[in-house]
């Protein structure tokens, strides 16, 4: 774990080491080799991320594959108007915000607490084992999990309902057929699947805390809880902000594969998200322009959120990624 990138090196301390060498080169020559190393990545990004963006123009056109890109008619903001003029579409946006928002919050708090708890474990082998186990679901695909979950959560005969009924004597819960429960299942299962990854990130930042601080605190008579509150938590703040900022970009990502494999007509009103909506329109119905418009709307919102979150963390936590 100690080899993992710590916040210090993210901040660029390593760079300082390389430029701080005794023999002074001109700045240009030092940077040249670095620039060259970055070049392939830049070119790839340009080709695969920026040039295709010109295709976004079809969001403002009535694109017909047969006619091609140039011959299709411009329609201005028609597709955007259509998106917001229909209440069902707006509902889809709300669903996305709610599901993604809940996932984001839970996906930040759970690994944070879990890392704190795991950090207190003394036995190294046990700690490593737990860490690996919680990371494992991350590698399962939602196609498989979707099947497993629908069996586990079945109203009659599902394991979870059997357990609940025998323990609490309640009526079986229709987890996947009731809108609110559906959202609950989606958020919990997503957190369960993904929290291992962020736990590792948090553990890495914990490993980077200077032990001298704890020693000093102990000398001053601080207990375990006080140490956690005054040393560990503040030290984890920067990485928490990074993780949170990155997650904000996903605020309109409800998680396509998960929802697609779990949803059904009974939960359309609470569970249909932008991605599944775009899938049905764009891939199933072949409405390229409209689905591009929705995608563009999504990207713009995410972009604005990331930029503002970054600004805020820069201003209040004095944190910078670059």
């Amino acid at each position: 774990m100690k080899n993992l990138v710590t916040p210090a090196s993210v901040k660029g301390e390593k760079l300082d080491v390389s430029t701080g060498k005794p023999r002074k080169k001109s700045k240009w020559r030092t940077n040249l080799s670095l620039d060259l190393m970055v070049m392939p990545a830049l070119i790839l990004t340009l080709i695969f991320a920026y040039i295709p963006m010109t295709g976004l123009a079809i969001a403002f056109k009535n694109y017909k594959p047969g006619l091609g890109f140039n011959a299709s008619k411009w329609v201005g903001l028609d597709h955007f108007e259509y998106l917001f003029s229909i209440p069902e579409n707006v509902q889809v946006i709300w669903n996305t915000l709610i599901i993604a928002g809940l996932k984001m919050i839970a996906g930040l708090i759970v690994p944070f607490l879990f890392a704190l708890l795991l950090n207190e474990v003394r036995k190294m082998a046990f700690k490593k084992m737990v860490q690996t186990i919680v990371y494992m679901p991350h590698f399962l695909s939602w196609v498989i999990l979707g099947g497993i979950l629908s069996d586990l959560l079945a109203r009659d005969g599902g394991l979870i309902n059997q357990a609940l009924v025998s323990m609490f004597g309640i009526k079986p819960i229709f987890f996947l057929g009731d809108g609110n429960w559906f959202r609950f299942v989606v958020v919990v299962s997503d957190v369960w699947k993904e929290f291992g990854f962020n736990t590792i990130v948090f553990l890495a930042s914990l490993a980077g805390i200077n032990p001298a601080l704890y020693e000093a605190a102990e000398v001053d008579g601080a207990g375990r809880w006080q140490q956690t509150r005054s040393i560990t938590m503040p030290a984890m703040l920067p990485i928490t902000i990074v993780v949170g900022t990155l997650a904000l970009g996903n605020v309109l990502n409800g998680g396509f594969d998960q929802i697609f494999n779990l949803y059904n007509a009974l939960v359309f009103d609470k569970g249909d998200i932008i991605d599944t909506f775009v899938y049905r329109l764009g891939i199933v119905d072949g409405k390229f322009s409209f689905s591009t418009a929705v995608g563009l709307f999504k990207s713009v919102v995410s972009f604005v959120l990331i930029v503002s979150a970054y600004r805020i963390s820069y201003k209040f936590a004095n944190y910078r990624i670059f």
Partner: peptide
């Protein structure tokens, strides 16, 4: 079955 609305043809 009360899962009928959740099941596709094969399931």
């Amino acid at each position: 079955s009360s899962e009928s609305g959740l099941y596709d043809e094969a399931k």
